Simulated assay, not measured.
Amino acid sequence: MLKKIVLVLVALLAAFAIYVALQPSDYRVERTVTVDAPASEVFANVNDFHKWESWSPWAKIDPNAKIAFEGPEAGEGTVMTWDGNDDVGAGKMTLIESKPDEAVKIKVEFTRPFEGSTNSDFSFAPNGEQTDVTWTLSGMHNFVEKAFCLVMNGLDMMGSDLEKGLSQLKSASERS
């Protein structure tokens, strides 16, 4: 009887491993919000990492996180590093492309609790007196990350974070 249970468990684990392996490695999560402010106002809040504390969905999770900035005040080449509790981990964001009032592209590298990277891209499109802001996370998942996303609905979690951040960015930009 124990042998049958073990064989069933091994078969289930093998089936799960095959299912995970067959999932696409690339991912893309995208959300959009309309902000009642000009593109220049919203762009300024994203292009300057010093302003992220007012709207980032992760900024308030660990108020004791160590944040440091390198390079220019804003725009291409600016860098922000963070080192916080287990909920925010540690890593580095590098602004790699900045097109005023149009787009911001950021390379995010995580060092703790796991190593990995993602692309974090923002686009700003005028919509009358308003601005449509689209935030996209994209990259490649390894086997463990694919399994996590399947078990924990990781892409839905990322989408929820983007929605929260865009809502807070909308509030911060409309106050300015």
Score class of each variant (00 low, 15 high):
residue 134 T to C: 02
residue 112 R to D: 10
residue 129 E to A: 10
residue 139 G to P: 03
residue 132 D to Y: 05
residue 118 T to Q: 13
residue 139 G to K: 01
residue 121 D to V: 14
residue 134 T to D: 02
residue 125 A to V: 14
residue 111 T to L: 13
residue 138 S to R: 00
residue 123 S to F: 07
residue 121 D to L: 13
residue 140 M to Q: 13
residue 116 G to R: 03
residue 122 F to W: 06
residue 139 G to W: 04
residue 123 S to V: 15
residue 113 P to K: 13
residue 111 T to K: 10
residue 139 G to M: 00
residue 118 T to G: 05
residue 125 A to Y: 04
residue 108 V to R: 04
residue 132 D to C: 03
residue 114 F to C: 05
residue 126 P to D: 11
residue 113 P to W: 09
residue 116 G to E: 07
residue 135 W to F: 06
residue 136 T to V: 15
residue 137 L to C: 02
residue 122 F to Q: 00
residue 131 T to Y: 00
residue 114 F to K: 12
residue 131 T to M: 06
residue 133 V to A: 01
residue 129 E to Y: 03
residue 111 T to N: 07
residue 133 V to S: 00
residue 140 M to T: 12
residue 116 G to K: 03
residue 133 V to F: 05
residue 110 F to Y: 14
residue 130 Q to T: 08
residue 127 N to W: 06
residue 117 S to G: 15
residue 116 G to A: 15
residue 114 F to M: 14
residue 135 W to P: 02
residue 130 Q to E: 14
residue 116 G to P: 01
residue 128 G to C: 00
residue 119 N to W: 12
residue 115 E to I: 00
residue 119 N to T: 14
residue 135 W to S: 05
residue 125 A to S: 08
residue 125 A to W: 03
residue 112 R to K: 15
residue 115 E to D: 11
residue 132 D to N: 10
residue 139 G to C: 02
residue 133 V to N: 00
residue 107 K to N: 06
residue 124 F to D: 09
residue 115 E to Y: 09
residue 138 S to Y: 10
residue 122 F to D: 01
residue 129 E to R: 04
residue 123 S to L: 08
residue 110 F to R: 09
residue 107 K to T: 09
residue 129 E to T: 12
residue 136 T to E: 02
residue 131 T to V: 04
residue 130 Q to I: 04
residue 113 P to A: 06
residue 126 P to Q: 06
residue 110 F to E: 03
residue 139 G to F: 04
residue 129 E to P: 01
residue 117 S to P: 04
residue 107 K to I: 11
residue 133 V to H: 02
residue 128 G to W: 07
residue 141 H to F: 09
residue 124 F to C: 04
residue 135 W to H: 03
residue 124 F to G: 04
residue 127 N to K: 14
residue 139 G to S: 03
residue 110 F to L: 13
residue 112 R to V: 09
residue 124 F to L: 08
residue 136 T to G: 10
residue 113 P to F: 13
residue 135 W to I: 14
residue 118 T to E: 14
residue 120 S to I: 13
residue 117 S to L: 12
residue 108 V to W: 05
residue 140 M to Y: 04
residue 128 G to T: 08
residue 141 H to V: 00
residue 113 P to H: 11
residue 109 E to N: 10
residue 137 L to P: 00
residue 135 W to M: 06
residue 124 F to P: 03
residue 140 M to H: 06
residue 115 E to P: 03
residue 126 P to E: 11
residue 136 T to H: 01
residue 133 V to Q: 03
residue 123 S to E: 07
residue 137 L to N: 05
residue 121 D to E: 14
residue 136 T to M: 07
residue 122 F to Y: 10
residue 130 Q to W: 05
residue 121 D to G: 09
residue 108 V to E: 07
residue 130 Q to F: 06
residue 107 K to D: 07
residue 124 F to H: 07
residue 119 N to R: 15
residue 112 R to T: 08
residue 121 D to I: 15
residue 137 L to E: 01
residue 123 S to P: 02
residue 134 T to E: 07
residue 127 N to V: 08
residue 125 A to H: 12
residue 123 S to G: 10
residue 126 P to S: 10
residue 138 S to G: 02
residue 116 G to H: 13
residue 127 N to S: 08
residue 120 S to M: 15
residue 125 A to T: 15
residue 118 T to M: 15
residue 114 F to H: 07
residue 115 E to V: 01
residue 126 P to L: 06
residue 109 E to V: 13
residue 121 D to R: 05
residue 133 V to K: 02
residue 131 T to H: 05
residue 123 S to R: 12
residue 126 P to I: 11
residue 117 S to W: 14
residue 125 A to E: 13
residue 125 A to R: 15
residue 111 T to G: 09
residue 133 V to P: 02
residue 140 M to R: 13
